[in-house]
Deep mutational scan, measured.
Amino acid sequence: MDVFMKGLSKAKEGVVAAAEKTKQGVAEAAGKTKEGVLYVGSKTKEGVVHGVATVAEKTKEQVTNVGGAVVTGVTAVAQKTVEGAGSIAAATGFVKKDQLGKNEEGAPQEGILEDMPVDPDNEAYEMPSEEGYQDYEPEA
């Protein structure tokens, strides 16, 4: 019985440690998101679009440190934060509304985080759909 109880105690310690790591990862992701939003706020009209992409990228980098179902929630929060940063930029006159959601080359930025393969159960990952990809044929 002692062996059984000791095993359960060790398992509990492992769960607590994993929860603490997840909590730490979420806190880091939130900190990076805040950094990115402050970065966007300090940019001029020309830099705002690039700044919004930076927020998304920093958040995406930190999301990889967070495991399990938390990833889905962090990704949703990050996307809403990026959308909010863009709205703030438009409201303050840093950028025109028609410039939001495009990178410096004018290509749409939507789907940055949505296409990231995420499995809350950590069982399997699927690649994003290939609808947006084109076949590449090298020139002879």
Rank of each mutant, 00 (worst) to 15 (best):
K45S: 06
V52H: 01
Q24Y: 15
A90N: 12
A30T: 11
E61C: 09
F94G: 09
H50L: 14
G67S: 12
G25F: 14
V118D: 12
G111Q: 00
A107Q: 11
D98F: 02
V49W: 11
S87D: 07
E123G: 13
A107G: 05
T81F: 01
N122I: 05
A19I: 15
E83R: 11
G41V: 06
T75F: 12
E46T: 12
Q62Y: 02
G47H: 11
E83A: 11
E28G: 06
P117G: 06
G25H: 15
E83L: 11
L100N: 10
A78K: 10
E126H: 10
V95S: 07
S87V: 03
A56D: 01
V49H: 00
K10W: 06
D2Q: 12
K34Y: 05
V82W: 01
F4Y: 14
V82I: 11
Y136C: 09
Q99K: 09
T75G: 10
A30F: 03
Y133T: 12
D115E: 10
Q109R: 02
L8H: 00
K58T: 12
L113N: 04
A85D: 09
F4L: 05
A69M: 10
L113P: 02
V77M: 15
V3D: 03
T44A: 10
Q62H: 07
A19W: 12
V77I: 04
E46L: 00
P108N: 13
E123D: 02
G132W: 14
L38V: 09
K60M: 11
I112K: 10
Q62V: 12
A30E: 00
K12Q: 01
V40R: 02
V118H: 12
P138G: 11
A91C: 07
L100C: 07
K10D: 04
A91I: 15
A30R: 05
Q99R: 00
K60V: 12
T33L: 06
E61M: 04
A90I: 02
M5Y: 01
G93L: 03
E110W: 11
A11F: 09
G41P: 00
E61D: 07
L100D: 14
G47K: 07
A29E: 01
V40E: 00
K12D: 00
Y125A: 07
E57W: 07
T22F: 02
K60R: 12
I88V: 08
M116S: 15
T81P: 01
E28A: 05
D98P: 11
F4G: 00
P128D: 06
P120D: 07
L38H: 06
D2I: 12
V71M: 03
T33W: 15
E105K: 08
D98V: 09
V63S: 02
A56G: 02
E126F: 08
K23F: 15
L8Q: 00
T33A: 06
V52K: 01
G132E: 09
G41C: 04
G132Y: 14
G86A: 15
V77L: 12
D115W: 13
Q24C: 13
G132Q: 12
E13A: 06
F4Q: 00
D98R: 15
A76N: 01
E105A: 09
D115S: 11
T22P: 04
D135V: 04
T44P: 01
